[in-house]
Design a binder for these strands. Structure first.
Lengths: 200, 200
DNA sequence: CCTCCGCTAGATAGATCGCTCTAGTCGGCG
DNA sequence: CGCCGACTAGAGCGATCTATCTAGCGGAGG
């Protein structure tokens, strides 16, 4: 089926955008990487490169969101989940030779002031991640407000650690951010337990 | 003097790169924004756009490093410094209509896998920030190792919060990351005080 | 079988890219 | 003054950019 071509275009774009950004990737390079005919790109994405960019953001965002969900399993220890998540992120960064970090951060920074539809797509993805992680922490027994703050802190720490890690070619920032985030979750859990005990 | 032209080119480039990235900014746009003759760009930067990019990274990095230093004054409370720094960052983000966040993060992500000299420039800048902030925390009474971890966590938290904040058009991530970082510094200071008391 | 249409295929347009080149201006110095 | 080097000024090169256009392939439905 021909839909496979569209999928290949999206996947190749996702990989290229992640490594070299949106503006730094040409449509010719995309179709070459995807082994797709040039005309197909404009057949599936009549809105051109910008529409492709938006769909790639949402696609990559959904994949990475599932990855987050895979670590923060309801009912299991959120402290261990946080630690494991950052450890896995550090390993993936290292194994890809510091190329594959966040799939949308590069594009997000590029387009936040230049393309409203793409910026909106990034915002939707980030909000999805925040809400998802937050929900899992709530299920882990933390108060809603505290969970949201932790989720934002955690995602911000990861994104920033990726920025530093890619430039420094080191996993240290991811490891350090992971330790700090894990500690923050541990304290939140402890504080909540203490509150429950006090209440009875 | 003619050096003023070079300075205008660097400053205009810094602003454009920060908002739309390196690949998304053309040299024609740079000289137009700087009101500089086109030929001057290649007179001052014979290495072309890449050399300009590298110098802009180092220039912007130095400016922002001074900003960090201005908040973390030796002898003053590092907890308050952290809080004030993030508060100021949130205000700057809001006032620039979510355009001016980190001056080099966008470029750092773009070039980390595509230009070794520019990637190295970003690494040098980040290392400078980390060492600078770390040194200030040491002067504030914290152990060296703990200071480095805090500095990395703080800078990563800020960078990530900028990524989220620009896309979401909200200062919430910066505020939340600031609160988390401030709390981490507060705990480190408290722990160090306790250690000192125990030792006598 | 034939027609229709989703899709493939790529040539090509028109603009823009980074960059080179020559010509010219200007101030300072011998 | 005469000269020289630093800088200005922009035309223009080849390459590459995004996007459009026409032409044709090939399977499904009438």
């Amino acid at each position: 089926m021909a839909a496979a071509t569209k999928e290949r275009i999206v996947e190749s774009s996702a990989e290229l955008f992640r490594r070299q950004g949106y503006a730094g990737t040409g449509v010719k390079q995309i179709v070459a990487e995807a082994s797709a005919p040039f005309g197909s790109l404009y057949h599936f994405f009549p809105g051109g490169k910008e529409q492709l960019g938006e769909e790639v953001i949402r696609y990559s965002g959904a994949i990475y969101g599932q990855l987050i969900d895979a670590f923060f399993v309801p009912g299991e220890d959120p402290v261990a989940a946080t630690r494991n998540f950052f450890t896995a992120a550090a390993a993936a960064l290292h194994e890809s030779n510091y190329a594959d970090a966040c799939p949308i951060a590069t594009v997000a920074l590029e387009v936040s002031s230049t393309s409203e539809p793409m910026r909106q797509a990034c915002a939707d993805v980030f909000n999805g991640w925040i809400d998802g992680a937050s929900e899992r922490l709530v299920q882990g027994g933390l108060p809603r407000k505290r969970s949201r703050a932790l989720a934002i802190s955690m995602i911000a720490a990861l994104e920033g650690a990726f920025v530093l890690g890619r430039a420094l070619r080191s996993t240290e920032p991811v490891e350090v951010a992971g330790a700090t985030s894990t500690e923050a979750v541990r304290e939140a859990v402890a504080a909540q337990r203490a509150r429950r005990r006090a209440r009875g």
